[in-house]
Design a binder for these strands. Structure first.
Length: 291
DNA sequence: TTCCAGGGGTAGA
DNA sequence: TCTACCCATGGA
């Protein structure tokens, strides 16, 4: 199966994939040399397939095993790469702010996300109060321990959905995932979703206000202000900065003193409804803290 | 051993 | 609203 996916002119494949660390979390696999993104996806109860995404002129090429449902493949790819996100307004905003003028030139603004909000939820929870190395290890254990493999390579597995996680006990999940005190929260959300008591995807409803989305996210176990703000980014809502230790350190560096979370929010106040993107694309690098 | 990492939940003030 | 404390895990 080969599908061609059109992309808007303000989209850049590598910028989107490299905008944050998600490319390093299974089942994503990013090859920087070939500029190829791979990911195992499962469609219904059929065997998972490996998708290979590469940039072509005016869009993307997606290759997968014969029989993969093209329409659904395209839908998921468009979602993962935020191809339908109206980023033009943010780009216009950036041209009026010296600190962000590089953003539209580089065609930045989109962030790689997962095909489901549940996967992004689990991964965001896995970033809290831990190191990036442990985040990768937690996610890898979840995928390798509970994900369904593709037929011709058992080493490549799909991300397990909430039903799969809910099918095992909390103790079993904890033994596999080793997410520490996060185990209970993740298993709870998976179980509630599997039981039909929780519909995470409804948070994509554009009719909901940003505050309604934020409060709904805060109500999820394991989700506090940081995680809720992170998840809002994947929902195209940028009015809250996801204040983490980096934000405190970097804003503290800009101001020359230790800062509170409230002061970080005040620092980004001029960026209006684009605060989270402003923080993310502010001219500092997370691997190179401002001197 | 002890500390702590891209926080969250809770109690108490 | 703010502070203090504990929370599993694993690396330093």
């Amino acid at each position: 199966m080969v599908a061609q996916v059109s992309a808007p002119g303000d989209f850049d494949f590598a910028e989107c994939v490299n905008a944050h660390g998600w490319r390093s979390l299974l089942p994503f696999r990013w090859n920087a040399e070939t500029r190829t993104l791979q990911r195992v996806e499962q469609f219904g109860d059929t065997a998972p397939v490996l998708l290979t995404i590469t940039p072509i002129e005016h869009g993307l090429s997606v290759e997968g095993a014969k029989g993969a449902p093209v329409d659904e493949v395209v839908r998921r790819v468009r979602r993962m790469l935020q191809l339908d996100l109206p980023i033009a307004d943010f780009h216009s905003f950036c041209t009026g702010h010296s600190k962000l003028s590089h953003v539209p030139r580089a065609r930045q603004g989109r962030l790689l996300r997962s095909p489901t909000l549940f996967e992004d939820y689990l991964k965001v929870v896995a970033t809290t109060n831990t190191t990036w190395a442990q985040t990768k290890a937690m996610v890898a254990r979840v995928v390798e321990g509970l994900g369904a493999p593709i037929p011709d390579d058992p080493g490549l597995k799909a991300f397990p959905g909430p039903e799969r996680i809910a099918a095992v006990s909390l103790d079993e999940f904890a033994a596999v995932a080793k997410m520490g005190y996060r185990n209970a929260a993740v298993h709870r959300v998976a179980t509630d979703m599997a039981n039909g008591e929780l519909e995470l995807e409804r948070l994509q409803d554009p009719c909901l206000s940003a505050n309604e989305v934020y409060k709904s996210l805060l109500a999820l176990p394991g989700v506090g202000p940081y995680a809720a703000s992170c998840l809002m980014i994947y929902l195209g809502r940028y009015s809250r900065v996801n204040v983490d230790s980096w934000a405190r350190a970097l804003v503290g560096n800009e101001l020359g003193r230790k800062v509170t979370d409230k002061e970080v929010h005040v620092f980004f106040e001029p960026y209006a409804e684009w605060k989270a993107l402003a923080y993310h694309f502010y001219p500092w690098r997370k691997d190179e803290p401002a001197a």
